[in-house]
Simulated scan of single mutants.
Amino acid sequence: MSRYRGRFAPTPSGPLHFGSLIAALASHLDARRAGGEWRLRIEDIDPPRCPAGAADAIQRQLEAFGLHWDGPVTWQHGRDAAYGAALARLTALGLAYPCSCSRKQWRDYPVYPGWCRDGVREPGKPVAWRLRSDLGLRPVVWRDRLFGAQRFDPAEFGDVVLKRKDGLWAYQLAVVVDDADQGISDVVRGFDLLDNTPWQRQLQHALGYSEPRYLHLPLILGDDGQKLSKQNLAPPLPTEDGAVRPLLHQALQALDQAPPVALARAPVAEQLAWAVAHWDAARIHPDPARHRRDDDATASPPA
Score class of each variant (00 low, 15 high):
5 R>T: 02
12 P>C: 08
13 S>P: 02
18 F>S: 14
18 F>Y: 14
21 L>V: 06
22 I>Q: 00
23 A>F: 14
25 L>A: 01
26 A>P: 14
32 R>D: 06
32 R>G: 03
32 R>L: 10
33 R>T: 13
38 W>F: 10
41 R>I: 04
41 R>L: 04
44 D>A: 01
46 D>M: 03
53 G>T: 08
53 G>D: 12
56 D>Q: 09
59 Q>P: 11
65 F>Y: 14
68 H>C: 10
69 W>R: 01
72 P>Y: 07
77 H>Y: 05
80 D>L: 07
80 D>S: 12
81 A>F: 00
81 A>Q: 03
85 A>K: 12
85 A>I: 05
90 L>N: 10
91 T>H: 12
94 G>M: 10
96 A>W: 02
100 S>R: 05
106 W>D: 05
112 Y>S: 03
113 P>R: 03
115 W>M: 12
120 V>I: 06
123 P>R: 05
123 P>W: 04
124 G>A: 04
124 G>R: 07
125 K>E: 14
126 P>W: 04
129 W>N: 12
134 D>C: 10
137 L>E: 09
140 V>D: 11
140 V>W: 12
143 R>E: 15
151 R>S: 13
151 R>L: 02
155 A>C: 13
156 E>S: 12
158 G>F: 01
158 G>I: 02
161 V>T: 06
163 K>E: 03
164 R>D: 00
164 R>K: 14
166 D>L: 09
168 L>D: 06
171 Y>F: 04
171 Y>T: 00
173 L>H: 01
176 V>R: 05
179 D>M: 01
182 Q>V: 01
185 S>D: 05
189 R>F: 00
190 G>R: 10
191 F>S: 13
197 T>K: 13
201 R>G: 06
203 L>V: 02
204 Q>C: 10
204 Q>I: 04
205 H>A: 10
206 A>R: 05
207 L>T: 09
207 L>Y: 00
208 G>R: 06
209 Y>R: 12
210 S>E: 15
214 Y>V: 10
215 L>V: 14
217 L>P: 11
218 P>S: 09
221 L>G: 05
221 L>T: 06
223 D>Y: 12
225 G>P: 06
227 K>Q: 03
232 N>Q: 15
233 L>W: 13
244 V>C: 07
247 L>D: 02
250 Q>E: 14
255 L>M: 11
260 P>M: 05
260 P>D: 01
266 A>W: 11
269 A>F: 09
272 L>G: 07
272 L>S: 05
274 W>N: 02
274 W>S: 05
274 W>F: 09
275 A>W: 01
275 A>L: 04
275 A>N: 03
276 V>G: 03
278 H>K: 07
281 A>E: 14
284 I>H: 05
285 H>A: 14
288 P>I: 10
288 P>W: 11
293 R>W: 15
295 D>W: 11
301 P>N: 08
302 P>N: 11
